[in-house]
């Protein structure tokens, strides 16, 4: 634009006053929700951080006079914390990866002008609408030693039965399987939307180049699903971080089955059962840091693509 110089300079004053008018007019709409949300989200995180620097435990008030990072150093020497962190990462990564793989396969199958595709989608997504508390009840029964479906299936295949929930070596895999059941339909919906956004010409172009179906997916389609993969993984990881409700419901207490303790359950137990509030606050802050490490690149990526 070479001829726009004078136009811009004359427009500038009105543009500026428009901007501030627009800003003032908008305050009424976003400021009240912002204050409410900001207080409970960011205010609470800040307060939580300060509590994590104290020595608070028990039911008394918080003594803010001496602040240090002792709770954090304590965590790294605590085998329970190390174990919960390992389990958190195993859960996060395995659950997300398996959900994405199943979701992608399902979406590719569904993306073929099927009849009843809405019906299939509704059913695959149904478990996601259920509470973790509800699905935990269903899966406790599925994993039951005597008459659970899982043991019925494996013993009909000639294997011996397992104590899925009370065996510390098996319980995390059992939980991951149940969560995959609940959320793989979600990954399918995200991938299906991604697939349907790919222009038809690209399929045809690849076809005329003589690509077979496998190569078509490898070269043309999968690379274009990058955006869908990123958003689905972020959301799935957040769900995995919230698996507290599921684990709590397996036992109905703050102590999850042995072998399935994650940071989310450990934090709540330290806070509301053992009353180590400062320690629990520190674990909460570390979970927050973990979430931040996941969402910061995601939001930056979305912002660059203009999709925020």
């Amino acid at each position: 634009m070479t001829d726009g110089g004078s136009a811009v300079s004359t427009d500038e004053p009105t543009l500026l006053s428009n901007v501030s008018d627009e800003f003032l007019g908008s305050l009424l709409f976003w400021l009240p929700p912002f204050l409410l949300m900001g207080f409970f989200v960011y205010g609470a995180i800040g307060w939580n951080f300060v509590i994590s620097l104290t020595e608070t435990s028990g039911f008394g008030g918080v003594d803010y006079s001496q602040l240090d990072i002792e709770q954090y150093t304590r965590a790294f020497g605590d085998p329970t914390f190390i174990n919960a962190t390992t389990n958190t990462f195993v859960l996060l990564i395995t659950f997300t990866a398996v959900c994405l793989a199943i979701g992608l396969l399902l979406a590719i199958m569904m993306d073929r002008k099927l009849r009843f595709d809405n019906g299939f989608r509704t059913i695959y997504l149904l478990p996601m609408s259920l509470s973790f508390v509800v699905t935990a009840q269903f899966w406790l029964w599925m994993y039951n030693y005597d008459n659970g479906l899982i043991n019925i299936i494996i013993s009909s295949l000639g294997f011996s039965k397992y104590q899925w929930i009370s065996n510390p070596d098996l319980v995390l895999s059992a939980v991951i399987f149940a969560l995959v059941w609940q959320f793989s339909g979600y990954a399918m919906v995200v991938y299906l939307a991604g697939l349907r956004a790919i222009p038809q010409e690209q399929y045809e172009a690849a076809r005329t180049d003589g690509a077979n179906t496998l190569r078509l997916y490898q070269r043309v389609i999968i690379p274009q699903l990058k955006g869908a993969t990123i958003s689905a993984s972020v959301v799935l990881m957040v769900f995995a971080l919230k698996a507290f409700d599921f684990l709590y419901s397996l036992t109905g207490s703050y102590i999850p089955p042995k072998g399935s303790d994650i940071l989310a359950t450990m934090m709540v137990r330290q806070a509301f059962r053992i009353n180590n509030q400062a320690y629990a606050a520190a674990i909460g802050i570390m979970l927050f840091a973990l979430a931040l490490a996941i969402i910061t690149p995601y939001l930056t990526y979305q912002h660059r693509r203009g999709e925020l």
Partner: peptide, 20 residues
């Protein structure tokens, strides 16, 4: 401001439970 709103979706609630 918008980023603060959207980031709020992904907050692990464990980070706010004690203050709450």
């Amino acid at each position: 401001i918008l980023v603060l709103f959207i980031a709020g979706i992904f907050i692990p609630y464990q980070a706010v439970l004690i203050p709450l």
